[in-house]
Amino acid sequence: MGCYFSTSKKSKIPGYEDPTVLASETPFTVSEVEALYELYMKLSNSIIEDGLIHKEEFQLALFRNRNKRNLFADRIFDLFDVKRNGVIEFGEFVRSLGVFHPNAPLEDKIAFAFRLYDLRQTGYIEREELKEMVLALLNESDLVLSDDMIESIVDKTFKDADTKDDGKIDQDEWKAFVTQHPSLIKNMTLPYLKDISMAFPSFIARTEVEEQEL
């Protein structure tokens, strides 16, 4: 029964990739990739039933509201959407979430965060981008800071991080800055991912059956 489900139905999902391949390229086990598939199917059929995660579905999952826009959620969606075709496919979902796994290499987390903050994808985090991100955060929170305070915080952060003093933060400067301030990448680790199989226990039984049949 398990095999029937896995071979005939999953292979019809656009962008479906073999869990053993995905497990070999990420910190996830095959069972965990199978559990992520269950999560993926739930998310990807929440609005448009096509087995692909659209931005609205991503926003609905994050905020319980399909229309809520958020600069950072937009950037994360764009980074997950590696093929840049407007949807997150299963392989993209698993590989991207792999970076957020507690056991993923620190280097990968640092690099992903850099790309997240490099809003205009110039290869650098620029002062204007940093200020734009601070303003975006203030816009969605109750935190009120005067423009002078914002300028002062952005200036100081830039002075500390831009060690080459060329007006932009490159990847090496970012890496050095994060090493000094590890809290900066705490968002890059999702403890949930260590328990993903437990979060979807119905899948474990099915996966065990499939493995026995193999």
Partner: peptide
């Protein structure tokens, strides 16, 4: 004033991917 701009940014709800794992 030891506030770091990146620490402030990290408070954004857009960074919290836990919603993906919550039962809807």
């Amino acid at each position: 004033n030891n506030l770091n701009a990146f620490d402030i940014i990290s408070f954004s709800s857009g960074f919290d991917l836990s919603g993906l794992f919550e039962d809807k």
